[in-house]
Design a protein around this nucleic acid. Sequence first.
DNA 1: TAGTAGTAAGTGAACGTTCGTTCATTTAAT
DNA 2: ATTAAATGAACGAACGTTCACTTACTACTA
Lengths: 214, 214
Amino acid sequence: MNVRSFNFAAYYSNEMRPRDADKERVIKKKAIEMIVKYGFDGLSMHKLAKAAGVSPATIYIYFKDRDDLIIQAGLEEELKMFDATLKGFDASMSFEEGMRVQWMNRTHYFLENPDQMNFMEQLKHSPYHHEIGTRVESNFSNLMSQFVHKAIDNKELAPLPIEVFWAISFAPLYQLVKFHINKKGITGSPYVLDDQSIHLALSIVLKGLKPTVQ
Amino acid sequence: MNVRSFNFAAYYSNEMRPRDADKERVIKKKAIEMIVKYGFDGLSMHKLAKAAGVSPATIYIYFKDRDDLIIQAGLEEELKMFDATLKGFDASMSFEEGMRVQWMNRTHYFLENPDQMNFMEQLKHSPYHHEIGTRVESNFSNLMSQFVHKAIDNKELAPLPIEVFWAISFAPLYQLVKFHINKKGITGSPYVLDDQSIHLALSIVLKGLKPTVQ
DNA sequence: TAGTAGTAAGTGAACGTTCGTTCATTTAAT
DNA sequence: ATTAAATGAACGAACGTTCACTTACTACTA
């Protein structure tokens, strides 16, 4: 019996033992911790079961198989990340204000959830990337498209393909946070990200993106 | 018998059968292909041996163990990448010219070697990252430091920490190439990187980095 | 209210497979 | 003759997954 043959009729007539709501959460969380610490190689179902305090068989009540577990964890984290990113954001904001909100939201979320970020980055660069792909992103990228096109129309932003915009706007932020999480800069020396650097980087990005006055 | 107990005395007196110079190359290459296609999970020594056309035991003549193989492959690719990046580059170049050379070198190398780039990106976001770390980078980052500090002194570049410089200068390029290699942009729609986008992105980055005239 | 039937949650042990690695031996060089 | 390269078979361990079974919860009966 697994998640795909869940008996909804029985569930709604209350004729079954309910699931422990915490178990799925704990399993996903421990899986992420193991992947971050030891890589995808290091995620074994036996070890995960032990870490989560359940039987190996229990994991298969909540997830179809190992791949499903990884993908479900990825989808959930992606959703959480988008939520955090868009807190207080509105596509109708001025370009500069909207950018500032998103930079700060992302920065704080990543710094407070380094395991989650690390996991997502591993996922993004693995063959699982294709599986997760565009299931969640549509809402998000629609909102971003709106925001970008409005900014271009208002001459707050130079006209450019959305991918170029994205790469220039957010890739530097991700890179800085990665330096911080790895505790190492390019030279290999210790690195700690501070607010000043974040603001400096953002202002440089904004300057680059501002349309040239004719 | 493995690489660590290699008999140099016997070797230089020509009393031993020489290694097949191609084998190590083929093993590394196939390993990279497997990792890119199936992730670190998907790299098994049996399958790798079959793919490389050798016995599993042969791999252990050239590499201490699986981790050593992965790390050696990573180190070699890192070296190759730096070589390609610095072709025609000189720390004494003007800032703009130096940046342009590096952008073009990197772009072309990545586009011509997508497997290698993908492998390095997986490595960078895995626990192996720490193992490779700063063994190769010192030459490279010294050169970059020179280049950056000279540019700041010459007022070609706004003063900023080297990590902020790096993040703004090169993270966007990496992101654009990743979109291209994945054949998908942010929206999930097909994406092909063209020269125009590369030049546009570089010019925006350079504009952002230029010091504000007082 | 106490007891029972019915359901799925939850489990530990076991399954067959595949893993990374090694060993005993053969092959191909000098 | 000497050396290491190269191998196929074999090792124990660990893998992902399943099975037979027990536990705990709910609904219903009386």
